[in-house]
Structure formats: C-alpha cells, structure tokens
Amino acid sequence: MVVFDRPKSLSPVPFHYCPGCTHGIVHRLVAEAIDALGIEGKTIGIAPVGCSVFAYNYFECDMIEAAHGRAPAVATGVKRTHPDNIVFTYQGDGDLAAIGTAETVHASARGENITIIFINNAIYGMTGGQMAPTSLPGQVTTTSPYGRDVNIQGNPIHICEMLSTLDGVAYAERVAVNNPKNVLKAKKAIQKAFQNQIDKKGLSIVEVVSTCPTNWGMTPAEALKWVDEKMIPFYPLGVYKDVDAKGDAQ
C-alpha cells in the first residue's frame, strides 16, 4: 500500500530551493489541493519574480511567469478570459507586498475570483537577503545592515489584516508551515482558498509564514524556531476574513 507519494500535480523534478526552505512544503500543499479537487486540467498558475520564479517548472498545470509584482493583474486577465478555469498566483513578500502592492490591493478590491498563495519569509531570497516589506522591526538584512529602523525604513505590512478590510476579499487566512500541526492547518486553508474559487466567492488569499535559513543566516532548525519565536508573534496566525463565517474570526 502506498502511504506517501508525490502529488500528481507536482512535477517529478528536483526543487532548486535551499536546504530548510519551506517553499517545497507549500508547493506540495498547493499540488495536493489541486489533486484533491481534481482541477489540474483546468488550472492556470501564475509564478512571481523571486525565489519561486521557477514555480512554472514545478506544477503540472498550465503556468505563466509574470513580471515582478504583476501576477494578480496577469491572473485577472486570465480569469476574465476563462472564468470557469481555476487561476492561482504564488507570490513572495517582495513581489506581493512591495512592488506588486497596487496589483494585490486592486485585484482584491475588484473581488477577482482567484486564489493567492502568499509566501511571507520577511526577506528577499533570490537577490541575496535584502529587506522585505515584511521584515521585522530590528531585523538585520543587507539593505538594513544596522537593523530595520521603522523611523527610516518604515513599518512592516500586515497583508491579511489590510486586505480583510476590502469588500472584494472572500477569505484571508494566515498560516505557517513550521511544524506538522501548522502544516495540516495550512493544507486545509489552501484547499479552502481553491474551493472558494470553484464556488465563485471572490478573492481568497492564504499567507504562509515561511523560512529563509540561507539569508536569515540560520540552520533549518533554528529558522523554524525563529518562526515560532519572532515571526508568529508579529504575524498572528488565523482567519482574518471569511464570508462564510458571519462576523469574521480573529
């Protein structure tokens, strides 16, 4: 009996990610959701610019590689052309919450019926460890070498909290993948975000608090601990908006 296998929607190729990076886990959860809902043949994924730029190599559905930050706009174009297809974006914090903030906010405000998977690891990975819009106050990065000073570099952005104020957003939940319990919760949230799209409820976003051991300068184990001790207290997990649940959680 097979108890563990590669999801059908995940391509049989090795990831390029660093040891201890949680992109691999989230990729798998997305593929599992696509498999569970049986939508691989009608799904179109939009890859970002950032470490997950090569996501188009990792999912078996049709994929588009967007310009930096523009994935929600590209997704809008696809979804409006093929409203019965399933469209998701997979974006990092620089892509979604810095250069693509306008696209993120306006796709949300329009209530585009798409699914956004948002990887928040508080740093730019691809370019080698610069400050992200979600870098924590005091966090040392290569462009905040003396620690992020909110008086100079500004405050981090809480995406789920912000988007939950927009009428077009059907569902916003923040999850983490730093332990098995959280991974199971994340899996459920991602699947719900796709189900919402099938049910034509509007925009669903799942923010995944993630790691970057390489650019945080930590071992993979230390990075998971840092998520617990630093990231989650600043970015509390939970459902920030759910049109199904009256009176929204949190």
Partner: peptide
C-alpha cells in the same frame, strides 16, 4: 570576475 546569481547559494 566571479560567477554570480542564485547559483552561488550551494
């Protein structure tokens, strides 16, 4: 002159 880019990480 170094090789550069993401390949430098590992």
């Amino acid at each position: 002159l170094p090789s550069y880019g993401p390949e430098m990480r590992g």
